[in-house]
Simulated assay, not measured.
Amino acid sequence: MKLPSPRGPLSENLVDVLHRGSGDLSTEPDGDEDVQLSLFICYEMAYRGWDGVDDEWEWHPSLLRVRADLEQRFGERLGRPEPADPQGVAAALAAIVAADDGPSMSGYLRGRATREQFREFVAHRSVYHLREADPHTWAIPRLGGRAKAALIEIQLDEYGGGVTGRMHQELFKQTMAWFDLDLTYGAYVNWVPASTLAVNNLMSYFALHRARRGAILGHLAAYEMTSSLPNRAYGNGLRRLGGDARATAFYDEHVEADAVHEQIAAHDLCATFAAAEPELAGQVLWGARCALMIDNLWAQDVLDAWAEGRSALRQ
């Protein structure tokens, strides 16, 4: 993935230093676009890296200092976890999901979206779906016992049971291909706004820190527990626009798989984890709330743009 175009002084500084392989990283960010892109640039070093950038930058002290400062800024938006009863985690997760009243992206795509709007939606989501499951996989070595086994069970489905063509990352490429989108990993990072980058940064903010292992589990649970019905709507909306079986396979796969994952995530994963580490029960619920909050902000951003008759992409 090529380094993206800067969106402010810090991302410009980062891109310049990483491209040259040396330099001073001490610039302050200017605005949320600059913050979110800069944080995404830092985080991507822990995934597949950037073309022409030495992998050693992943652990370079100066880059880690920038990342820590950006994480502090991002964390201020998220609040902090509160103590929770570990025995009530599964029920509390269900209550959080039931109380969510965010904008209905799935309803809009099912019945009203134009082909171009659905295509934009797919471009936004490609930043996550082309590495789907990868952020949550960071939690596996940080768990033990039943919680670890439950997470592996979920992730095994996400990775297609070891069959490349069944990996959800690969299925999403079929949807992108139907829309004639660029299938390259990270191709649309330059196109998406800060709200889209924040959705992806939140996962890394939780996943790359062992101290937030409860939060990434809650994040995954929120995703699994709010996935089946929206994906049915996405599939039906794409069929309304003429999408064939290959184009809708990604969404259709999630309708069935996530109906099962919902129960595994709430009970076998999160409830079991909370019982084993009760001091982190509240962190699990916090992770779920943050997931829904950041996703809702992104959905509102996109829907507002469409309501105003403009693109929700930057270019």
Rank of each mutant, 00 (worst) to 15 (best):
R7K: 13
R7P: 03
L10H: 09
E12S: 15
L14S: 08
D16K: 14
V17I: 12
H19M: 10
G23F: 08
D30C: 13
D32K: 10
D32A: 14
D32R: 15
E33D: 15
F40S: 04
I41K: 02
C42L: 02
D55P: 10
E56P: 00
W57V: 02
E58F: 05
E58A: 12
P61S: 05
S62E: 14
L63E: 03
R65M: 06
D69V: 11
L70G: 01
E71L: 00
Q72E: 15
Q72S: 15
R77H: 15
L78Q: 13
P83F: 07
P83D: 02
D85G: 07
V89N: 00
A95F: 07
V97D: 09
D100L: 03
D100A: 09
L109E: 04
F118C: 08
F121A: 14
R125E: 15
S126K: 00
V127D: 00
R131Y: 05
R131H: 06
W138V: 09
A147P: 12
K148G: 08
A150P: 03
A150T: 11
E153Q: 13
D157C: 03
D157R: 00
Y159R: 11
G162D: 09
G165H: 11
G165M: 14
M167G: 13
H168V: 04
H168W: 03
M176N: 05
D180A: 14
L183C: 04
G186M: 00
L197S: 01
M203T: 06
M203L: 14
A207M: 05
L208P: 00
H209N: 11
R210D: 13
G214V: 05
G214R: 08
G218Y: 12
L220Y: 10
A221W: 02
E224C: 10
N231Q: 10
N231S: 09
R232T: 06
Y234L: 10
L241H: 07
G242V: 11
G243R: 01
D244A: 00
A245I: 02
T248Y: 02
A249N: 05
Y251H: 14
A257N: 08
E262L: 06
Q263C: 07
A266V: 07
H267G: 03
H267E: 14
A271W: 05
A274E: 02
V284E: 04
L285N: 01
L285M: 05
C290F: 09
L292W: 09
D295R: 14
N296M: 09
L297Y: 09
A299Q: 13
A307R: 13
A307L: 03
